[in-house]
Write a protein that binds this DNA or RNA. Sequence first.
RNA 1: GAGGGUGUAGCUCAGCUGGUUAGAGCAUCAGAUUGUGGUUCUGAGGGUCGUGGGUUCGAGCCCCAUCAUCCUCCCCA
Length: 454
Amino acid sequence: MIKPTLPQGTRDFPPQTLRKRQYVLQTIREVFERSGFQPLETPAMENLDTLLGKYGEEGDKLIFRILNNGLDNPGKHDQAMAGFHQVLEGQNSRAVTERALRYDLTIPFARFVAMNHGQLSFPFKRYQMQPVWRADKPQKGRYREFWQCDADVVGSPSLLYEAELSEIYLEAFRRLGIAVQIRINHRHILAALAEACGGGRLTDITAAIDKLDKVGLEKVMEELARKGFDDAQCSIIRQYLSIEGDNEEKLTATAALLGTHAKEGLTDLRWLLTFLRRPDGSDPLTIDLTLARGLDYYTGMIFEVKALEAVMGSIGGGGRYDDLTGLFGVPGIPGIGISFGVDRICDVIEEKGMFPPSIAAGPAVLFFHLGEAEARQAWQLLLALRQQGTACEMYPEAARFDKQFKYAERRHIPCVAFLGAEEIAEQTVRLKTLATGEQETLSRDAFLQRFARP
RNA sequence: GAGGGUGUAGCUCAGCUGGUUAGAGCAUCAGAUUGUGGUUCUGAGGGUCGUGGGUUCGAGCCCCAUCAUCCUCCCCA
């Protein structure tokens, strides 16, 4: 016999935990649906080719690959051996693995759109809530299997969707009771910065400046110097990172520093901020010029959501991509999407103790088991209660009362019903509310009425 | 991929510089009362101390390895 364990970074979800997750999923789903997004699901696994090269070099390493079946087939022995040698040299081999678990929901969606663009009417708005897998090393807020909730729109370059998705973030986190900061930036601005530094090396720059709030300005500049940026280039980046103030001030300062190269990005940001501006003049979004986001396919506005009042990495992110389906041979379909990190969101709500107590509630009524004959009568009432849509159950045997009470308490069942000899004789039922200890004797009709939904 | 912490009862943990039969609280079960529990009292079950080696007269404690888990860096949701 072996000790049962879970694969690293995966978790079981016992009932109490799952209720919390479902509450989060349901809340987000309602916001998606209300905004006109339609549900979509894709398979847990994709062809490896579909995923490789879409998430950057690091991303490829974190994709869970599925070993092909039948590798022990003697007829294919040589092929398999050759494949393994390729794998050992760090290359991919279809002879060994040709499928992989999905890494996110965006690329599978792009694959879906590329396959079905003839049937879809654009703009196409879909949401998707499914687990994804990453071969990361687990730690706080990081799992190998976790859920994402994505909303994407493809087939329109309109900034109206930047606005719509922003409002979805705001509304969802408002409903969940999480205080967040939603940060935005624009890839064009980052590109303009790289341009001002002589072009190219965009990744080196973004990787370094992304760490600003974590390691501080001086460490960032050290890293850049180490990577071979000269004084003139460092000076520009230093000025860029030194830009502070409110959104308006950041826009102005960036325009002054980067000039025409950044114009398009700045115009987009300004439009979005103005569009979303609240009646009191406040901006619900915050410009963060250091925000880069690792995913290669973003080309326009980028988003990231941080929980305030909680130590946690980002709990959501997204951005616009001009040509995601182009990777699959269908060019010219621009899109934008956002993602909710459900597991981290659950962790934050748990940390803040913000889950509504109601989600722990069990069935409405527990029927006590008072003996074989009594239980038979009570069972009929139980069925009638269920028929009208009220959740209820019966204790399985005529155990001591304290056991039956304790069971009700543990299951968070608020009421218990007694149907014993007396009640049967009088055609009544005795109802006790556990929280208050109150008891009352009701006719069976009145009893059913008590739990009937309005 | 690099580096650290922690593994003792179902859960949370104690266990001294290595020394008899490894403990506590909670939980569970049984009993004291039985058509109304949660307070109280009594008792019981449950641990090859993560696993495998080593040092020692003697290891839960020291050493090595291994596994699991948590955390930090990298990167991310």
